[in-house]
Design a protein around this nucleic acid. Structure first.
Lengths: 344, 344
DNA sequence: GTGAAAGCGCTAACAC
DNA sequence: GTGTTAGCGCTTTCAC
């Protein structure tokens, strides 16, 4: 039995295909009894509108593309970050009967912009969600903008662009975490910075400095180590920081992967956590609860962010693009076992 | 400037649209000079074929759908598993200019089959990759089969169905890991079983028993604890096993998440790893290297599996479905720091 | 409130 | 080798 088409439904219901179209698109101006007749025919024939045909005729694809950084083969993909964005985007898509296309890409690659434009122009998605750190790369943002496809940026750091963006209050919450560590008696609180192209992550460093100031602690350059968000870079940073004399009694890393690196190194050096060293991260992905001791961290509302971003695109699909303010979804502290009072 | 269509290209190149179509589809029987003329026009106009139009006319969507289990909100999604499948599927898609739609779904939900069929019949993908444990649920397999869409199952455990499937040699490699532990002097080797609906995971338990036998060790029921692949269940299982007297000197968990749970509990109890207890897992996701000590585990070639599965679907797209044997991609041991000689 | 006709941008089948 | 003609299954426009 070949798949039923809109014509089959129209025939069975005894109406025109236009009326069937009205029913499946929930358009007004259909008599209730007609609607029911059509619905019965649809159910009976197990009819499902062909999305390609709809897209071709309506110029709306019911497709959202999620674009994020692909660190490439050389690095163990921790994935926690990506999975949570996907979850959020999928939640928004599901409830609106949209579908999600995922597209990791490597911004170091020369051809990314061509690749992205190709993808967009072939599939004509109703919207693109661009995740950090790609969201603060003008080259990519402009390439997508050039296709005239609605775009929402995730965690753009600063909101220069006029597109809608969704982020969290990295700076504020990092000040809060720093004050929390200070309130535990820590005065030598080190910080590991993150990915250099990632503006939102840079804001975390600013928040750390705010927190120090608010706690009447002096900022000490030697307590800062540079990382790049990878576990590996966390190792290196920890080795540097834990060799200091006197040692910091707390290390706040700009993400969880690097915090995990600190825990490794501390364990290897026989430094007790949290007895001798408190460790805090940022993200609260699965990792935070998988490692030992469970990581005190900042819960970044990634999935909510991606959901709002996608929902905005879905709502706007077809309509003229609405001007919106950048939306900020607050992050919160998750105090677990890796932090404690400063050693006496 | 409105988007260029095939007609624009044909006009500019001075050929018919059919010739342009031949060129973009890499069909034979086009003179080299004509091909070049068309290519120049395509480049000049930045023409990209509209996928909806192509799909509608050709009944091929250049879309692969990856379907996997969504543990739901209540559980921390570790995601390592999913990310690696996605990576593999994306690799296959990218090289063939296909796109990947992801579709996590909850098999406990009554409406999954309807939902899946709806998705498939609307989007008409060229193929579906169904991941374990969904791949060994007849309800789901049959629902997809009913849509007449080519299907490849991942790690189906047993290959009852006639569809193509890709898996790994769980049983063989688990015997190998068990022998490895035995060769380190362990005689009380415990095992934590996994997800009850996951046939491939059940094979791991069989492999464990094989390994014991091959090492002349007796199987001891009391050294087996039941888990469900979650970190949490690893905690519970470890608490049970580590309360035993005499204690096992090695614990082999059917996946990495549960192994991480064992490491937690051992740490909390002050049991040294690997000095007093060796711990091994299965998967080798990011987690294995993030936790301390780095986890000895089995490297499951998930991304290669998903890549082969997707590539098979892409190759077959349009062609009659080829009969194939289940493909087995071997797994390998990754010996790291969490295992060592049995204590004297 | 409903329907007829045109057409979205491509590929298939067949001609030449 | 290349072109012509008909659709693919819907939505749009406009008529009634």
């Amino acid at each position: 039995m070949p798949k039923a088409t809109i014509d089959d439904v129209a025939d069975l219901a005894g109406v025109s295909i236009k009326t069937v179209s009205r029913v499946i698109n929930r358009e007004p101006n259909v008599r209730q009894s007609t609607r029911e007749k059509v619905d019965r025919a649809i159910t009976k024939l197990r009819y499902r509108p062909n999305q390609s045909a709809r897209s071709l005729a309506s110029h709306r694809s019911r497709l959202i593309v999620l674009v994020y950084d692909d660190p490439g083969e050389y690095e163990v993909p921790s994935g926690g970050f990506v999975i949570r964005m996907q979850q959020g985007a999928l939640r928004a898509c599901k409830s609106a009967n949209f579908n999600l296309l995922i597209h990791p890409c490597n911004y170091r690659d020369k051809h990314v912009t061509d690749e992205l434009q190709g993808l967009i122009e072939r599939t004509r998605p109703d919207g693109v969600v661009l995740a950090a750190p790609l969201s603060n790369m003008p080259r990519l943002v402009n390439a997508i903008a050039a296709t005239n496809t609605p775009l929402v940026r995730l965690s753009p750091g600063r909101s220069k662009g006029q597109e809608f963006a969704v982020g969290t209050d990295d700076r504020r919450v990092c000040a809060e975490m720093t004050r929390h560590l200070a309130s535990l008696g820590h005065s030598r609180i080190a910080f590991i910075t993150g990915h250099r192209n990632h503006k939102a992550v840079a804001n975390r460093f600013l928040g750390y400095k705010d927190g120090l100031r608010q706690s009447d602690l002096d900022f000490d350059e030697s307590l800062v180590a540079a990382g790049d968000n990878s576990l590996r870079s966390g190792h290196a940073a920890a080795e540097k920081l834990l060799a200091l004399d006197p040692r910091p009694t707390a290390i706040f890393a700009a993400n969880d992967d690097m915090a995990a690196g600190v825990i490794h190194v501390a364990n290897r050096l026989g430094i007790d956590i949290p007895g001798e060293l408190s460790v805090a991260g940022f993200d609260d992905g699965a990792l935070a609860q998988q490692i030992y001791p469970a990581l005190t961290t900042v819960r970044q509302p990634l999935s909510a962010m991606a959901e709002h971003a996608s929902a905005a695109l879905i709502d706007e699909a077809g309509k003229p693009q609405i001007e919106r303010e950048t939306e900020v979804i607050p992050a919160t502290l998750k105090i677990r076992e890796s932090t404690g009072p400063a050693p006496a």
